[in-house]
């Protein structure tokens, strides 16, 4: 027996390998202009959302210096209870004091949008994370064990896919107050048992037949060890990619539910548009006159959703060899 000479601890080698693969990944990623655009927009929204606390401070110093009484009493930049007493009729069009105008209740639209931004991120990422964790574990186990477990989860996925998820969430909204976290949880779980398991299982099956799985088995590794140490790390890139698509889905679904008035969320981009709809500003010919009530929020939803999608597609072209260029 010869002793292995390892100059560096294992974790250091792993870290180095990881950094190297990250760097080559970045080289490939840089060429995907759309994905870069997506990443840029996501970073923009992240900063935009984080800057929210500064917004009232800046506005106060610009416009309310001499009327701090009114500022304290009416909190004109509060996204939920704010009101601007100096403006005669709400909704008011964009002005210097309110760059995106005010809604029918006199609240500042920009403040509402900024306040909602981090919440959209939390919701989207939480839901997608739950989906991916469930989908990855089920996909890996179904592929590894096969048999009854496989059949059970695949049929379950069939039934979940049979339910139109939006319709189901609408029913669930009658059961319970769909708060932000509950909504994220339910969307995450629902999607986790759905089509993502099929995709990840297919990928896990290709990993399962590789020689290192047999090698691990022959050394007496437990099933759980093989699944978590060997199969899951190999399908993680694909899971991560589907996470991007699921973020898109979650943000979209939340916006629709809020728009239909079915979610119990105090403020979100969808709620802003619902406000415009329920107070009748989206009816008939006046639709274009009050554009600031629906356009900015709608554009934000669309931009953030498509950015995550662009990012996901860009990553897909790196992860999925069949989409690579020759």
């Amino acid at each position: 027996m010869t002793e292995m000479v390892v100059a560096e601890p294992l974790w250091k080698i792993r870290l180095k390998l990881w950094i190297r693969s990250l760097r080559t990944g970045w080289e490939l990623f840089k060429e995907k202009k759309l994905a870069l655009f997506g990443l840029g927009v996501i970073i923009f929204f992240a900063i935009f959302g984080l800057l929210y606390p500064l917004y009232p401070v800046v506005m106060k110093n610009l416009f309310w210096k001499h009327d701090s009484f009114g500022y304290q009493t009416f909190m004109p930049y509060d996204p939920i209870v704010g009101f601007d007493p100096d403006i005669m009729s709400h909704p008011s069009p964009p002005s210097l004091r309110h760059p995106l105008g005010t809604d029918p209740l006199g609240r500042d639209i920009l403040a509402m949008i900024m306040y909602s931004t981090p919440r959209e991120f939390v919701l989207g990422i939480t839901a997608a994370l739950i989906t991916v964790i469930i989908g990855t574990i089920i996909g890996a186990s179904a592929a590894y064990y096969g048999g009854v477990i496989d059949t059970f989860f695949m049929r379950l996925a069939d039934i979940v896919m049979l339910f139109p998820s939006l319709a189901l969430l609408m029913v669930l909204s009658a059961f319970m107050e769909l708060t932000l976290f509950r909504l994220a949880l339910i969307m995450g779980i629902l999607a986790g048992f759905g089509s993502i398991t099929l995709v990840l299982k297919a990928q896990a099956l290709t990993v399962k037949v590789r020689p290192f799985i047999d090698a691990a088995k022959s050394t007496g590794a437990s099933d759980a060890y093989i699944i978590f140490k060997h199969i899951i790390p190999n399908i993680l890139p694909l899971s991560f990619l589907y996470m991007m698509f699921n973020v898109t889905g979650a943000i979209f679904t939340e916006a629709v539910l809020s728009f239909l008035g079915l979610a119990n969320i105090r403020m979100s981009w969808g709620v802003i548009i619902q406000m415009a709809e329920s107070s009748g500003y989206l009816m008939g010919a006046s639709i274009g006159m009050y554009w600031w009530l629906w356009l900015p929020a709608g554009v934000c939803i669309t931009l953030l959703c498509s950015s995550f999608y662009f990012l996901g597609r860009g990553l897909e072209e790196i992860v999925n060899p069949r989409l690579r260029k020759r």
Partner: peptide, 13 residues
């Protein structure tokens, strides 16, 4: 992709 991920009520409006 923009249409695919557009907020559908926005498109309708």
């Amino acid at each position: 992709i923009v249409f695919w991920t557009i907020f559908l009520p926005l498109l309708a409006i």
